[in-house]
Simulated assay, not measured.
Amino acid sequence: MSTLLVYRHTPGPLHATLLAGTVPLFLGALLSDIAYTQTFQIQWANFASWLIAGALVFAGFAFLFALVNLLRAERKAGQRTLYVLLLLATFVLGLINAFQHAKDAYAAMPAGLVLSVIVTVLALAATWTGLRSGGAK
């Protein structure tokens, strides 16, 4: 008797949670960066650093789920490939952003703010692609 392997057409609950969790964390880091540029209160930069670290954990695990699903996929991997590439870009630029935020006080700005904008947009695009039409299969 042969067994039939069934692959998900939508992300599983854990995968979807990890994927969707990246957006508010990266968005919170962006808002913290904006607050820091307005007030120069160092605590906003600290908040941004911690939010980026949390977002990288979520994005890293979501990327691993997506990569495993891409490797298991049989055909029509175009949408899945775009999804994995968006997650990879989000993670890599998020890591660069974390290194940028590790600098002393205002030395992280304005590059940290620009990277936060880019990473937030990438996280939104990855989440949209992954949850829209089963890109995370």
Rank of each mutant, 00 (worst) to 15 (best):
L95W: 10
K137T: 00
L82F: 05
V92Y: 10
L93S: 10
S49P: 07
V121R: 02
V57G: 09
S32A: 15
W50Q: 15
V68W: 08
V92M: 10
L87D: 00
F40Q: 13
F61L: 12
S49F: 09
Y7A: 13
L19C: 08
V121Y: 01
G78S: 10
L51I: 03
L56Q: 07
L18F: 15
L124H: 03
H9F: 11
L67D: 01
M1G: 15
Y7T: 14
L18D: 06
L4C: 02
S116Q: 00
L18I: 13
G28T: 04
L67E: 11
V84W: 04
E74V: 12
A126D: 10
L19G: 06
W128V: 09
P110Y: 07
R80Q: 15
A111P: 05
V119I: 09
T17R: 11
L18N: 13
T120R: 02
L95S: 09
Q38H: 07
H9C: 02
P110G: 04
Q43R: 10
P13V: 15
V68S: 14
G60E: 01
L71M: 12
F91R: 08
V6K: 14
L70A: 08
G21P: 03
T10E: 14
S116H: 07
L51A: 07
G21E: 00
T81L: 15
V114G: 01
A77D: 07
V57K: 00
L85E: 02
A73E: 08
A62F: 02
V117D: 02
A20I: 13
L14V: 14
V84D: 02
W50V: 15
V23L: 05
R72D: 14
L64D: 00
A55Y: 08
F47V: 08
L85H: 02
T120N: 04
K137N: 03
Q79C: 06
G112Q: 04
R72P: 04
W44L: 04
R75N: 12
A48L: 01
V119M: 04
A105G: 09
A48N: 01
V68D: 11
T17G: 11
W44E: 12
L95P: 01
N46E: 13
I52K: 06
G130E: 02
A66C: 03
G12K: 04
L87G: 06
L25Y: 04
L70K: 02
A108Y: 03
L86R: 05
R8D: 11
F91Y: 05
G130L: 00
I52F: 05
H101Q: 12
